[in-house]
Nucleic acid binder design. Structure first.
Lengths: 320, 320
DNA sequence: ATGAAAGCGCTAACAA
DNA sequence: TTGTTAGCGCTTTCAT
């Protein structure tokens, strides 16, 4: 019989199977996009766990678009995915709440909205990491440290900003409004950088000597623009990112940053959603993964011939 | 009635719908991985077309692993996806043939195996592009041009190599065995670079003065390693990539390369699979997309203070 | 117009 | 052991 099936090129029909078993063996995975290897590393982590289970992920992107996010979430529900894992978007709290209330396990990735106390999430504990980053800038002699962020009203993003402020204060420095630029949520980073540079460097008497960026995705185009404007990094201004996306370590870029444990987030997200599926009664899973893994590179330090890295001495730095 | 449905949080069941209609509205999309924004750009192209149709893509990765590729292909078949789009892998020709024979439209991306005359594909016409790249190296004064490739027995990859050889010959140069390194298919690029550098630079009397890389994915770690070994780019050796992956253009990297029309490939792949679904009788769709878009950057040219780019003069170059 | 029923392909339970 | 059947949720057809 099996031979005949093979001979006839029989392929079982998953829709029928899933209908009969009322179980799909599928997990919805909705990431922002496939940029800069974040999804690559995340999925590696997830697959490491899922490969030995009956589940397989359906990957989709929301591209920071509310309508698309809603559509993909709906598709996932219609497909009867047994769990959903997604990078959250603001203004979707209500949808997330509905999904969780309807009994589909939902795990948020990387950040989570406030006022979602009952929801599950797996995030990098990036508040302390931001403190490490800012402290590094202070240790290499910087005192006028600017903040470049993006308007993403989520808990961990806010903690990074809060860590920036409190780390400055602890060092006896005063965070200044003119050295803070929070971009509207947009994909047009060119416009963001133009506005940020005008604010930071427009007045020669109050230039910052370092810029702390909310994430590497902001730091990279910033470096591009600084280079184009002839502002020397790290001499005139040091730059710190957050995340350690793979190519930031390339010699020619050398962005100083703190490593986000992306693969671990993938692994833990997979474990969390499995846990929610198998033991829904045990309530939400909330994981905060530490990583204080500072990567000191060219954008904050000088490489000296004998092989070490040193801070840029004050006399080599920009002055009005 | 609709109100009651909404109130009861009714969500239609896709499995049941697909079973009844024997039509899934799904397309299988299997890419190698989510590295270096290839899949990002590709999917942008696809979504641009698919968003206005009833189809939505199911994205999966094969990670250059035959078993995983087979599994994802099988899943796609079981899901009754109405078409499949995938980056081909060697040794899967038989599977591709079976799928196409069984009536599921199949479109290969980026490259295709020889001896698959009846299959559909959408590829970059990278042979002429490779010729443009090699000619650029010759024009900036390089004469000892090495080839760094990877063992990927597909038509377009072979054409790039063939273009390398014939472009050298046309310029009166002789391709030499010692300046050719073809890596085994592996993800361990570190080992590949170690072996390649030993072969190219081991003998000071026969160093190449340029390296033409099959793709940017090879060129990036090569640059890394050259930097680490203290071999100056472009002074000692010029480097050309192929593809123009987004971050290769960052100021600090500045990889000279030729642009692969990735978004166009995504768009055309979507159109092709739709065409195959709607008009299967019209036979395979084979699209070869031109792009000779040379991006001249730091790894082949010197930036001079007055704003232009010039070749490195011979006296500044390495000699034994 | 509205309602009833058949059937998509599978699996599990039950009958022989 | 082997064979038969009900039913998962939907859409279409056919009957009322």
């Amino acid at each position: 019989v099996l031979e005949a099936a093979k001979a006839a090129n029989y392929v079982p029909n998953r829709a029928a199977r899933s209908l009969r078993l009322s179980r799909s063996d599928g997990l919805g995975v909705i990431v922002a996009d496939f940029r800069a290897d974040w999804a690559e590393q995340f999925l590696n982590g997830m697959l490491g766990v899922l490969d030995s289970t009956r589940f397989s992920p359906f990957v989709a992107v929301h591209r920071f678009d509310e309508a698309r996010s809603r559509k993909e979430l709906q598709t996932s529900l219609e497909r009867r995915d047994e769990g959903i894992v997604c990078q959250p978007l603001p203004k979707q709290e209500e949808v997330y709440r509905q999904i969780a209330a309807a009994g589909t396990p939902l795990v948020l990735l990387g950040d989570y909205p406030a006022r979602m106390s009952g929801c599950s999430y797996v995030v990098w504990d990036s508040g302390p990491a931001a403190a490490v980053a800012v402290r590094h800038l202070i240790e290499v002699g910087r005192r006028r440290i600017a903040y470049l962020g993006v308007d993403y009203p989520m808990v961990m993003s806010r903690r990074r900003y809060a860590a920036y402020v409190s780390t400055l204060r602890e060092a006896g420095l005063v965070p200044e409004r003119k050295w803070e630029y929070v971009a509207p949520a947009t994909t047009n980073l060119d416009a963001v950088m133009t506005a940020a540079l005008r604010q930071f460097f427009g007045d020669p008497d109050s230039r910052p000597d370092a810029i702390f960026c909310l994430n590497d995705g902001l730091a990279m185009p910033l470096l591009q623009r600084l280079e184009a404007e002839g502002i020397r990094v790290p001499h005139d201004v040091a730059v710190m990112g957050m995340g350690d996306l793979p190519f930031t370590g390339y010699a020619g870029i050398g962005l100083s940053t703190v490593r986000e444990p992306i693969t671990e987030i993938g692994r833990e997200a997979a474990l969390s959603v499995l846990q929610l599926i198998e033991h829904p009664e045990q309530g939400p899973v909330q994981k905060v993964i530490p990583s204080l893994d500072l990567r000191v590179r060219r954008t904050t330090m000088l490489r000296v011939p004998d092989g070490g890295d040193v801070p840029v001495p004050p006399e080599q730095r920009w002055r009005p």
